[in-house]
């Protein structure tokens, strides 16, 4: 049985996160929003990774969500909340349909194909100028909440909590069993009665839904989208690095990783402009060499050692 103490820490953390804008100025709030964005993406990436499938398509679905939201706002004038929810729904729908093709692939072939998907989305949006604004992109007449810093903070915090909730649901439900079994051994999973395709499709759709939602919220908060920024490779690479640093196959791992890398990179940006990426890369290499299970993996190992 779980002790109540196991719930107190996460609940306190959630509460503290919500209170931050009361104490922090606009700049730290903006940093926090960026950290939350990447954190939610890192968590969504890990949700699929638990089945053993490495997706490089985060930026693709993020960008797809961004453009869904901004096109609906600019061309159809829908309410921001509708635009953001549509971003999630459209990314999920595209993932669901494409899942029938790409989820037949495994390992490197799956990864490369997801990378290509993102590029295909980008090329379509880049060239469909009359509808998408082409290379110059689209600009919103006004960002949500009139750009009020604390409101934008709470919005991105709510999205983060949604991603965390989805990930915890995956961890606590039978989904966890299915995905771990598929990652461990597909033949054994199939002969145990697990419908591999259905489980992968759910995981792929759910993780893409979160990525689309984060993209939609991001674009509504910043007010513009261009193919090169909405599909920036950093939206794939940074969440990946964060999850690896924090520890994969868990919810805590990506949270810890995103918090550390997000804050460190912001600090380094101020200390050594343009040099921060170098330090960033070094951290990632060192972690993978010496902490292959990430920080949370190390914590878990120490804890199980202490408990015998």
């Amino acid at each position: 049985m779980k002790k109540p103490a196991n719930y107190i820490f996460p609940l306190a953390l959630i509460f503290a996160g919500g209170l931050l804008p009361v104490f922090l100025g606009a700049y730290p709030q903006a940093v926090a929003r960026s950290v939350f964005t990447f954190m939610a993406l890192a968590i969504s990436w890990d949700m699929l990774l638990r089945s053993g499938q490495i997706s490089f398509g985060i930026a693709g679905f993020f960008g797809l969500g961004s453009y869904t939201a901004i096109i609906l706002s600019v061309r159809a004038g829908v309410a921001p909340v509708v635009a953001m929810l549509s971003a999630a729904a459209f990314a999920a729908l595209v993932a669901f349909l494409l899942g029938f093709l790409v989820l037949r692939l495994r390992s490197t072939y799956f990864s490369i194909t997801t990378l290509a998907l993102g590029e295909i989305f980008k090329v379509i949006i880049h060239n469909w100028s009359s509808f998408t604004g082409g290379p110059e992109g689209l600009v919103l007449p006004q960002v949500v909440f009139g750009g009020k810093s604390s409101s934008l903070y709470w919005l991105s915090y709510a999205i983060l909590l949604f991603a965390v909730g989805a990930s915890v649901l995956f961890e606590k439900s039978k989904m966890h069993f299915s995905l771990t079994a598929i990652r461990n051994n597909e033949i054994a999973a199939r002969t145990s009665g697990i419908n591999i395709f259905a489980n992968l499709l759910i995981a792929f759709t759910a993780s893409s839904l979160i990525q689309g939602l984060v993209g939609g919220v991001h674009v509504m908060s910043y007010g513009f989208a261009m193919p090169d920024t909405a599909f920036d490779a950093n939206y794939t690479l940074l969440p990946l690095a964060m999850a690896l640093l924090g520890g994969i196959h868990s919810t805590w791992g990506p949270i810890i990783g995103a918090l550390l890398l997000g804050v460190i990179s912001e600090y380094l940006k101020l200390m050594i402009p343009y040099g921060h990426l170098l330090v960033y890369g070094l951290i990632i290499i060192l972690v993978i060499l010496f902490m292959p299970r990430g920080i949370y993996g190390l914590i878990k190992k120490e804890r199980s050692k202490r408990n015998g």
Binding site: T180, A181, R183, N184, N185, I187, A188, A189, T191
Partner: peptide, 12 residues
């Protein structure tokens, strides 16, 4: 089915 290789879940 008990497959030919030791098809189990090694990490569990």
């Amino acid at each position: 089915l008990v497959p030919q290789e030791r098809e189990l879940f090694p990490g569990m």
